[in-house]
Nucleic acid binder design. Sequence first.
DNA 1: GAACTGTAAATTGTCAACAATCGGCGATGC
DNA 2: GCATCGCCGATTGTTGACAATTTACAGTTC
Lengths: 230, 230
Amino acid sequence: MAAPEGLFVLEGRPTAQLIADQLREQIVQGTFRPGQQINESAVAAQLRTSRGPLREALQRLCQEGLLISHRNRGVFVLELSTADIKEIYAVREAVELAASNTLMDAGQDQINDTCRVLKEIIRDMAKHVAVSDWQAIARLDMQFHSTFVAGTGNTRLIRIYETLAAESRMCILSLEVAYPRLDVLVQEHQNLLDLLEAGDRKGLQQAVKRHLEKAVEDLTVARLDTEITA
Amino acid sequence: MAAPEGLFVLEGRPTAQLIADQLREQIVQGTFRPGQQINESAVAAQLRTSRGPLREALQRLCQEGLLISHRNRGVFVLELSTADIKEIYAVREAVELAASNTLMDAGQDQINDTCRVLKEIIRDMAKHVAVSDWQAIARLDMQFHSTFVAGTGNTRLIRIYETLAAESRMCILSLEVAYPRLDVLVQEHQNLLDLLEAGDRKGLQQAVKRHLEKAVEDLTVARLDTEITA
DNA sequence: GAACTGTAAATTGTCAACAATCGGCGATGC
DNA sequence: GCATCGCCGATTGTTGACAATTTACAGTTC
């Protein structure tokens, strides 16, 4: 088939996508702050490229909604309001519930494959919980959910969820310390995994719903605090 | 507030987005055929612009998934397989079911506003059914569903559905005459509207599900025919 | 002192030229 | 006859320069 032994297709993906992926990572890691303007010349120089390819990448991220473009003024990193948080998690609920159903209808092999990866993520998560590495935990949290959705094999659902995951990480990042009680977090994900493995469709759906509703609560409450103190 | 009397913000939207919107319309109308390569120079000249802004627009459509980019070879219009059709309608089901729930939980005013627009669309649809204007019917069909989703007010759900609507129109277009029994089509949409107006959550959900499942059946069966005859 | 106007710097939007890459086609060798 | 190599046209990828617009600031006027 493809790539027989140690040979990779050289730079198979388009440049703009590579740049967009890098920028997305920088955004969710907080290198670019919400509301901040992206200076094309500066970022292009930093990435050792010219403004052309960079602008193409920026357009991709605008389409995703991570950046917003004001004509003749430039592109800015999205600022998340409480309404945005509710929107994001409402869509996540829709996607993850659909993924739950699809996975349950899929073969046991497909479920097992997914569960195997999810187990490893939870293991990693537990490690980082031990040392309270928030950034890593946020990344693994979203990786868990992304893997879950990826288990469906639906490329469109996966692509949609990629953006949602990025936005979710921005939510979490925007309030620095958002995770209340870290051990509960690991426990909740373990619970989702168990229900998936057991094939408990109804239970899984309810657990997903509650997991996300709880997240919205934590995020909006924390945000109210920051808004009041600010 | 904004635009007090007859004054509009001059060209408020970014250029790349305007070009992308035009191209998307051309794609779903079949001006660009599936699998066809987009010649940058030619299209840029046709749009009275240069390759720079055009390429930015193309990147947006690549991100959406309507175009696919092969490095150093160019961008091509998406070719829809039966697997794609199933994917698209699976995501549509997820989105529309979520929209149903959100709308039902929303206030009666919001529902009424939506229903008013939906009624007009159905009226238009009936007109075009009388003269069997397929293109118009396909457009109104998706406009009905887009309006339904837009009723939730969730901007992210709306943006996601925009792409799905475009892809759906491509599905329908790709097999020329896809609508079996036009009167039934109008009837089905009227049924959805009635259930929404009546506040019958369960009934609406089931109707949406069956409506989409039926569409997939029609599309995949029709596609099998074309593939056999081809 | 406040409001308005005009200028200047910085940044984005656009363009045209250059470089790199790919697919096709004919020539060559086996 | 078939496969391979190498060239050529066409198209994309990239760059730097130029034009247009916005924002901030200083100067002016009332």
